[in-house]
Design a protein around this nucleic acid. Structure first.
Lengths: 231, 231
DNA sequence: TACCATATTATGGCCTACCAAGATCATTCA
DNA sequence: TGAATGATCTTGGTAGGCCATAATATGGTA
């Protein structure tokens, strides 16, 4: 008979992802990176053709994105890419502030140097990406910085919420990080979070995290106002 | 010619809800109120029969509930009602604390007596429901209390997040409110929130809201531990 | 020309039927 | 008895069709 300890070794690695998940990722990606613009209609049959999948899949994907807030469904008209207004963006930044502040405080209260070290690592990656003018890298490593913040204190639910909200403001994020001086200010603000965590200063970490988000929010508001008048 | 200012007045109010939304509500309701228990399999064709709709609808509904966290999808096995463990419940209460605390603080900082009045109204409804032993009413009015808290300061995004998380712990909520003395303590804690808001005491309102959620969380943990050993 | 009524088209909502493949259960045979 | 075989259940995915409605085009009439 087969040695079951061995059979695992040759197990064929299945795609793991279902077609629907693949399609979901594609469409989400397409919205986030601007291939579909806010307000664009998402015509089911067109998406079928573009994605090469059946309408069933497309509909499930649209439903999923709808519940993520990336897609809005106009009654009797159909789905469009959700538009983000001023106020909603502000609220999203505010919530991120509350949750990231909470996570930062918890990290500080752990008094575990490994946390600050891991965060420093991400921070260095961010600085490096800025030097290389690799903006996608900046976003990715910033995300990873915050993920560390949450996962180090086992707050995956809160991280899920932050993540969910973040995709909705992704295009704003990519604009804020390109702002004048942001390559210096951003990492500096994050360094303050790490310092407070290293000191075990919960309140300081909370405040620093809030400050960082608040300044990102302010820049985003400016970007939004500017664009509104430009369009 | 038609008077367009008038034509709006006689506009026929259509059902507005699509069959899918109806089905979604039904299934969500069924999960929340315990008709489907955590771990139960949700077989597509069975649901089709029970709901009287096609598989298309059922699949979209399941996808939607999956993204809400009410349904989990086991690969190659299919959807089941999501199970909530200790830790996740705790995290959900924690997030609610952060967001409701935030909203309470914002309410206090408005210095608008109408807010406290509206909250008092909900609070009175809650007390009344407790007296009538109407537990569904208690839940509904508690929900409405918090909705007021968020909507009075126009934080509908945060309210959406809280609402999303709350459905996942609904069965816990219905247990906590039945706890000994909760009919007195619960409203008393909420009254402290309202008092702080009326005084314009942001920090006090924040703390009071946090306390209220924290005590609910503690009860929920006790319930979960008890049930775990009982089952 | 101005306007109204009537096709036509585009699209979403919804349905049925079908197939492939994995998981599971039952049966059968050595 | 225990393993191999086969039947069944269920999901993932596809195809195509029907109907209702909104928007648009078309054409006829005053």
């Amino acid at each position: 008979m087969n040695d079951h300890a061995h059979s695992a070794a040759i197990r064929v690695e299945r795609p793991a992802k279902t077609l629907r998940e693949l399609a979901l990722d594609k469409v989400r990606e397409a919205i986030v990176n601007g291939y579909f613009r806010p307000g664009d209609r998402l015509v089911e049959r067109d998406l079928c053709a573009q994605l090469g999948v059946s309408r069933t899949i497309v509909r499930e994907v649209l439903r999923h994105l709808e519940s993520e807030g990336l897609v809005a469904n106009l009654p009797n008209k159909g789905p469009i890419v959700a538009q983000l207004n001023h106020d909603e963006a502000k609220q999203i930044y505010e919530i991120r502030g509350a949750l990231e502040g909470m996570a930062a405080r918890l990290c500080a209260e752990q008094n575990n140097p490994a946390i600050a070290d891991a965060l420093d690592k991400s921070l260095e990656d961010i600085r490096h990406s800025y030097r290389e003018r690799d903006m996608a890298g900046v976003l990715a490593h910033t995300s990873s910085f915050y993920q560390t913040l949450f996962s180090m204190v086992d707050r995956h639910v809160a991280w899920g919420v932050v993540n969910l909200l973040t995709v909705r403001i992704n295009h704003l994020r990519s604009m804020t990080i390109k702002t004048e001086n942001r390559d210096v200010q951003g990492p500096a603000q994050m360094a303050r979070i790490v310092d407070a965590i290293r000191r075990g200063d919960g309140e300081g970490a909370y405040k620093a995290a809030m400050d960082h988000v608040a300044s990102a929010s302010a820049i985003a508001q400016a970007v939004l106002s500017g664009r509104q008048s430009a369009d």
